[in-house]
């Protein structure tokens, strides 16, 4: 469904991603693992064309999307959930969902406000609150809910478990599995191996912008030395 082929990305003169190559098959969950600053977010932004790769290409459903503007990428069913909980703090929960809303897409669930509230009951009670009044966990839920409103076929989840309470982390894991069961493809980035183990089928490990391992979760579990070398467990 998504192929990342020989992607190199830069911030100014700093070479941040070095020849990334991996695939995400339809209906699977792939975890992008690595420490802080390894290049996980840049990989996601390169896929979304929020950072333009200087070389290489991103193939999504057979289209080379490398030169597309971000909004066109999003309109073709790639939903991005940013890491810094970039919700619109001045807007209410309902208005945040409105910004994410897109027309229905063939073969994808058409989400409504009520459906995302079923998925995240906490948000339902706070639908008329402004974004800035939400807790960290609720904000994280809202970023996911907002992206779902675009009826994506594929979502990019940037560190969904970062900085939120353990109870909510568990809820996140359940949500991801539920989305997968509904046919969504997921690429998520994580520092937390335990969380990844709970949801992922495939794993990509990156360090210093270079990928060090690509395989299934069971491949990784069979090689504890790699796990210990690149991930803080």
């Amino acid at each position: 469904m998504l192929e990342v082929k020989g992607v190199n990305s830069f911030y100014g003169k700093a070479h941040v991603l070095n020849d990334m190559n991996f695939e995400v098959a339809a209906g699977t969950v792939v975890a992008l693992l690595g420490r802080n600053g390894a290049g996980k977010t840049t990989t996601m932004k390169s896929i979304m064309q929020m950072v333009r790769p200087r070389s290489g290409s991103i193939i999504y459903k057979g289209h080379d999307i490398t030169t597309w503007p971000s909004h066109k990428v999003a309109r073709n069913g790639l939903g991005y959930v940013p890491e810094e909980r970039r919700i619109f703090t001045q807007l209410t929960v309902l208005e945040n969902l409105e910004v994410g809303r897109q027309p229905p897409r063939d073969g994808c669930t058409t989400w409504t406000d009520e459906m995302v509230f079923d998925l995240f009951p906490n948000l339902a009670e706070r639908r008329n609150n402004r974004g800035k009044a939400l807790s960290g966990g609720e904000q994280q839920m809202l970023t996911i809910a907002r992206t779902l409103m675009g009826n994506p076929a594929f979502i990019l989840l940037d560190e969904p478990s970062e900085g939120i309470a353990p109870v909510i982390v568990e809820q996140m894991a359940r949500v991801i599995l539920q989305l997968k069961s509904e046919g969504l493809t997921v690429l998520l980035s994580e520092q937390n191996l335990h969380f990844a183990q709970a949801v992922a089928d495939g794993v990509v490990i990156i360090e210093h912008g270079t990928q060090k391992f690509v395989g299934t979760l069971s491949d990784l579990q069979a090689q504890p030395d790699i796990r210990d070398q690149y991930l803080s467990v």
């Binding site: 909004h71 208005e95 809303r101 907002r146």
Partner: peptide, 24 residues
């Protein structure tokens, strides 16, 4: 209105609005 909501969202974070599929 929806347009107004998009405008207010863009006032705060243009890049994010674009990533959500709105043609900035």
């Amino acid at each position: 209105t929806r347009i107004g909501t998009l405008v207010r969202a863009a006032t705060q974070d243009r890049e994010m609005v674009s990533a959500l599929g709105v043609n900035q």
